[in-house]
């Protein structure tokens, strides 16, 4: 009697994730098969649109939860998209730098700087969405409870939000990426990417765990007590298996990337400046 509940965004995500693998497989095939090369662009566009829908689905897992003050917001979907742009690009830059270094292929500044500038834009965009989300919540009195929890006295969630997500994960990398010195230094760019990823993890923690830790408001204006932790902030620490499971996912993705780029010939042999930019003038200007 199991059936597919199409009203469940969770169920949709199953299709979206599995479908994405298929779409990417087609994209790879178009790229690898010379006869099919003319469809590469279309397939790539298809994959891009699919991932937009996919991340809309992921964000909506939270956005559609009407019961919880911290969720139940349409902004979750676009915010998750921009977050995936930002964290994804940070990971991409790191992987790119590592792969080119390890395989002794040239990676020019032109492309790297283009990417890091784009990363800066994405980081700023995430901050904008976070600002819009909290401002909207702060406007309505009914959401003051959860906002106060996240922004002021939520303990670990508050610290993660201000110090890690905003400070270390957004403002600092933004500063580094756009300042003249570190912004043109590969080590600093790599470091900034790392900061963005750490900030991203903190942000996910605040959204996913913090949003559920805060007690649901069932009786407005009343203090609630019970044997079932009503009105009490839930207490959660990831267990070792949970932690390892999370880490394992990342490891699996990275392993797949390494094997893929080694076995399949996708990685351009060179991303040196003269390859990337036909108008590049070898005489390095500033």
């Amino acid at each position: 009697m199991t059936y597919y509940n199409f009203k469940s965004i969770f169920a949709w995500n199953i299709i979206l994730y599995i479908g994405f693998m298929g779409v990417v497989a087609v994209y790879l095939w178009m790229m690898m098969e010379r006869k099919m090369n003319r469809f590469t662009r279309a397939a790539g566009m298809g994959a891009f649109i699919w991932r937009l829908i996919l991340t809309t689905g992921t964000g909506s897992i939270f956005g559609f939860l009407v019961a919880r003050q911290g969720y139940d917001a349409a902004i979750m979907a676009p915010m998750f998209i921009v977050m995936s742009f930002s964290f994804g690009l940070a990971i991409f830059i790191l992987v790119l730098m590592a792969l080119y270094k390890w395989s002794d292929r040239p990676l020019g500044d032109a492309i790297l700087f283009r990417l890091k500038n784009l990363l800066g834009v994405f980081v700023a965009a995430v901050m904008y969405f976070v600002l819009a989300y909290h401002l909207t919540n702060l406007y309505g009195t009914e959401n003051h409870g959860v906002e106060r929890f996240i922004l002021l006295d939520g303990g670990v969630y508050t610290q993660l939000f201000w110090i890690v997500q905003l400070g270390i994960g957004s403002l600092l990398p933004l500063l580094l990426l756009y300042s003249p010195g570190p912004g043109t230094n590969r080590a600093w760019i790599g470091f900034s990417c790392l900061l963005v990823i750490i900030g991203g993890l903190a942000q996910m923690y605040v959204i996913i765990i913090g949003g559920q830790a805060y007690p649901m408001e069932m009786f407005p204006g009343k203090e609630v007590t019970s044997t079932f932790f009503d009105g009490v902030v839930a207490d959660y620490t990831p267990s070792l298996p949970e932690f390892v499971l999370g880490l394992g996912g990342v490891a699996l993705a990275l392993a797949a990337t390494v094997v893929g780029t080694r076995v399949l010939r996708f990685l351009p042999a060179s991303l040196a400046d003269e390859q990337v930019d036909p108008h590049h003038t070898p005489a390095k200007a500033g």
Partner: peptide
């Protein structure tokens, strides 16, 4: 029921 809406398997 929101619980029914979100359940992926219809359980």
């Amino acid at each position: 029921p929101p619980c029914v809406d979100v359940c992926p398997t219809g359980a």
